[in-house]
Each structure stands twice: as C-alpha cells, then as structure tokens.
Design a protein around this nucleic acid. Sequence first.
DNA 1: CTGCCGATGAACATCGTTGTCATCTAGTGC
DNA 2: GCACTAGATGACAACGATGTTCATCGGCAG
Lengths: 136, 136
Amino acid sequence: MAVQADHALRDAGLRATRQRRTVLAALRDRSDAVTAQDLHGELRAAGEPVGLTTVYRTLTALADADFLDVFVREGEQAFRLCGDQHHHHLVCEVCGKVEELEADQVEQWVREVAGRRGYQVTGHRADIFGVCGECS
Amino acid sequence: MAVQADHALRDAGLRATRQRRTVLAALRDRSDAVTAQDLHGELRAAGEPVGLTTVYRTLTALADADFLDVFVREGEQAFRLCGDQHHHHLVCEVCGKVEELEADQVEQWVREVAGRRGYQVTGHRADIFGVCGECS
DNA sequence: CTGCCGATGAACATCGTTGTCATCTAGTGC
DNA sequence: GCACTAGATGACAACGATGTTCATCGGCAG
Ligand SMILES: [Zn+2]
Ligand SMILES: [Zn+2]
Ligand SMILES: [Zn+2]
Ligand SMILES: [Zn+2]
C-alpha cells in the first residue's frame, strides 16, 4: 500500500515523504471530508508528527492534482479522497458521509442550458445535501 | 424606490436605515456578485459613508432573510440580489455576470437519487460556470 | 416629541490560511 | 553505499476575512 501511495504522489509530481504517506493513508480511511486542522489534530493524537503547514500544503497539492475534492463549509475547507472521473455528491449533513454520484440528467441539463444561452462551459457543480438512512 | 427598499427591509425584520438602503440600492445596480469589502470600498468611493462592519452585517442579514444568494470564491463570500423562488445559476467567469435558471431535470434528479438511496433531502446546489457570448 | 431599543462603526479579537526561512531529506548520479 | 541538490518540512510570523465590543446614534411606535 505504501507503494501505491508513492505512485499516487509521483503522479501528482510530489516526492514520497513520510508525512505525505501519512496524510494519504488517513484520507483513505475515511468517507467524509476533513479539515486541514482536524486532520492535523488527529495525526498528532495518533502519534504521527506532522506539521500543520505540511498538512495544508499536502492537501492543497493533492487537490490541485485532482486527487481530492474540496468542500467549503462555514468558512473553512474540507478535503476528501475522490474518484478521478467526473462525479457529483450526496452528502449527509449529520455524519458527514459523502457518496459519489453519476448524473447523466445533470450533464445533459448543463449542455442544454449552455447551448441555448450561448455560453462556453468551463465547469459545473451539482451536489445534494440531506440526512442518510442511518442518521434519521 | 426607497419605499420598495424599506418594504424589503421591513419584511426581513430590519429597520430601514440610510446605510441599509444604500447597500440594497448598490445591489440592485449589478448583476454580478460582490464581496463585502469590495462593496464597502465602492460605497466609500461614491461618497456614501458606511462602515465595513455594517456592510458585513447588512449582507449577512439580507442573506439570512433569503434576499441574497451567497457565492464562495477564493476563500471569501460574494453576495448577489436574487429572485425569491428556488433557482440555479449560470455564471460567466470573465465578466462575473450571473443568470438565474430553472432546472426541472435537476429537481427530478435530486428526488430520484435521494429516494433510491434513502436520504431525506435538506438542500441541493447546481450551478454552471462558463464564458458568456459577449466575453468569448 | 420622547424614549426605547435596534443599529452603527471604530477598535479590537479571532480564526483559517499562507508566507518565511533555516534545516532536513528523497531521489539521482556516481 | 555516498555525496549532492532540488524539493520538502515545520516553528513561527503575517495576513485577510470575519466576529465581538461598546459607546453613541437614530428609526419609529406611542
Ligand atoms: Zn448520516
Ligand atoms: Zn457533472
Ligand atoms: Zn461574460
Ligand atoms: Zn433546484
């Protein structure tokens, strides 16, 4: 697994350091989105010495390399390991769990609207928020 | 028009003050989203004495009352006067113009996905980003 | 007109995030 | 293995957006 992580980091144009492996491993273990500060706290608590600055930089770098999705909530950003193909999200607002979705209907809507209004699409976003079965 | 503004403020449970009328008027004059700081700067430049704190408070209050939509970009939030019924957005990334959209297909997608996965929906978001005809 | 209570705004506090820089280390070439 | 260098780290400072305080002001009901 460390090998896989190294590969992923390599692909992102990053050196495989102990800290980055640690961050990636922590991300693999969760299906919700984490804040840089929270992640830093957890790693520290788990006895993994990683600097806050490094956590920020690693998360940002991985997000730039499209390994992570970024969610903005209450003025801070949370990161989550996400599939590499285009997708949308279904987020539980209670437990924070995130499920990835395909949405052909949305893709079609985007094309239709853009075409009709003469826009050149550069991106779009479509996410659903709710409470999952376990939490309600 | 000052009367209309007063009505809107009343509806939001806010007193109609000179500063709030000024902020509302400034929002009516633009179809893009503004930052609290930018708006504050513009009002100052236009000779309208309004405190930064007040601009923040007014924008937040109006957004809480669903008079404004909030966009988050680059770590800061921008506000825009928006229609009062549910809608989505088509945003030009060059000139900042925002168009409001209906999206039956999206509404249906939301219901379908939530139903199939056993979620109780609390909200959703769907916006398209691109370059408008004039800007390309 | 008066009084009350919400509203204002300057100063200050907070918080997430990014910049700095001396030090360290992964990965390369030998 | 070994030395070298570009990239990475982390304690700390700095920054900008936003929240809070509090003395003062003014909208608006009576
Ligand atoms: Zn849940
Ligand atoms: Zn899509
Ligand atoms: Zn445009
Ligand atoms: Zn909708």
